[in-house]
Design a protein around this nucleic acid. Structure first.
Lengths: 240, 240
DNA sequence: TTGACTTACTTGTATATACAAGTTAAAATA
DNA sequence: TATTTTAACTTGTATATACAAGTAAGTCAA
């Protein structure tokens, strides 16, 4: 599947963890054993194992080996740069995307600040509602620099913009900064979402960057309070 | 400072970024130039650069070089495993910790589930309020397995438990899983915090693990809605 | 039996080399 | 002049080797 050796080994080990062939608490084969299994060098194995460790799938213990963790077992959404479609597929709940707005606009002051664009540049504005199990839970307001995304359609926005961007436009989405905070409901929230009795929403500001570090997307994702959940995995950095 | 070559190079480059010697948008020296500067091998330089990249400080671009990002510039708290003392020092706001409870207890059902302990084991319960700029903003309820932390005092809890655990007890805190969600205020919240008019709090469940993957701490951190903020940096995983 | 030592394993770090592949600018060519 | 080619850079991947350091279990001696 992968052209990279270490990435395909990462994938293979990951699928063995997810399928339960390697169970939480269990030791996976030692680096030298994996070298023989995959017929490669130890450094290549170590690259794959370090990726698994970074992502919270295993813990490497010096002198002992690597054991499978269970922190990734039941928890979604876990930290990462992932599209709603990918998330919905993992969650397995019936969900639907409703495109409420799709237009090209000039940036206002808010957008000039968040998307780092000038007044003359064109911006795609996409407003979508995510319906989960029949309830309108999330309001996604996406803004794309038209320089990077010349064309968009309602159909693309309903299916998956990321799939289109990566597969059709060959954009290399690389990293994102996310800011989480809580804000009072706006009229727009009440218009598009089932906010129920709640007075606040959880807001996730998403700044998404391409391979060459250019900012191409700003997203404001507004979640109904009671349905919001986020999981983060973090490693402590020791500098001694 | 560090015994590790690649970690000390990571530190050195990081401090140059934080001091503004390397500014956002700027290229840092190429790997080969750094090899000469630090008199080391390219693989060692690459380990340092890959760490900086993971943590959101630089973007490596094939064929071009590494450029400094600004996503880490103004934002705290950013994702990571960091103590309140470390956080408060970075934020620079006047803050104070008030120890409200400190006792040894037997686990109830909630704790047996969250801390993976049996009914017979002893648990440290520490309830602390974090006062920021004079307001009681955060309620931290920490639970430590007494097996790992035989002794605690009010003084330690006021200063920094982590500093005590790492420096005195030599515990190797390794990784954590954090769950974020929103919950209705409890009587306890209203007792200890200035919740004002808010009906909900942001809850952060923290599961903290040692080097050998043993769960030693469970923390419930309850934040006043309007003061909560969290920043996450994520890289997209491409598997092709 | 107890404790110290040895041995064989584990992962961690540092180095060297080779080649692939993307970028850029100078040089050669039409 | 305009275009193509080349050369010199950049980072990415894969391999090999050496040694350090932590773990665990068996061996040997007191």
């Amino acid at each position: 599947m992968s052209e990279n050796k270490y990435l395909s080994i990462y994938n293979d080990l990951l699928s063995k963890i997810e399928k339960g062939i390697f169970k939480p608490g269990m030791k996976i084969p030692s680096e030298n054993q994996l070298v023989e299994q995959y017929e490669t060098s130890r450094e290549t194995i170590r690259k794959a194992l370090n990726l698994l460790s970074e992502h919270g799938y295993i813990q490497k213990i010096k002198g002992k080996g690597s054991i499978v963790l269970d922190v990734r077992k039941f928890d979604f959404p876990i930290s990462g740069l992932i599209s709603f479609k990918e998330l919905a597929q993992k969650l397995g709940k019936p969900s639907r995307t409703i495109v409420e707005q799709l237009e090209v606009m000039k940036p206002d002051d808010m957008l000039k600040k968040h998307l780092h664009v000038t007044a003359r540049e064109d911006i795609w504005k996409v407003v979508r509602v995510r319906e989960i199990e029949g309830e309108r839970i999330i309001l996604d307001k996406d803004f794309f620099n038209k320089k990077f995304v010349p064309f968009l359609s309602k159909d693309i926005c309903e299916r998956s913009i990321y799939e289109y961007l990566e597969k059709e436009l060959q954009l290399k989405i690389s990293f994102a900064k996310k800011e989480f905070f809580v804000e009072e409901c706006t009229d727009e929230d009440r218009k598009y979402l089932h906010v129920e009795q709640y007075t606040h929403v959880v807001v996730v500001r998403n700044y998404v960057y391409l391979d060459d570090a250019s900012l191409f997307q700003y997203t404001e994702s507004r979640h109904r309070l009671d349905k919001f959940r986020f999981v983060d995995f973090a490693r402590r950095i020791h500098l001694h």
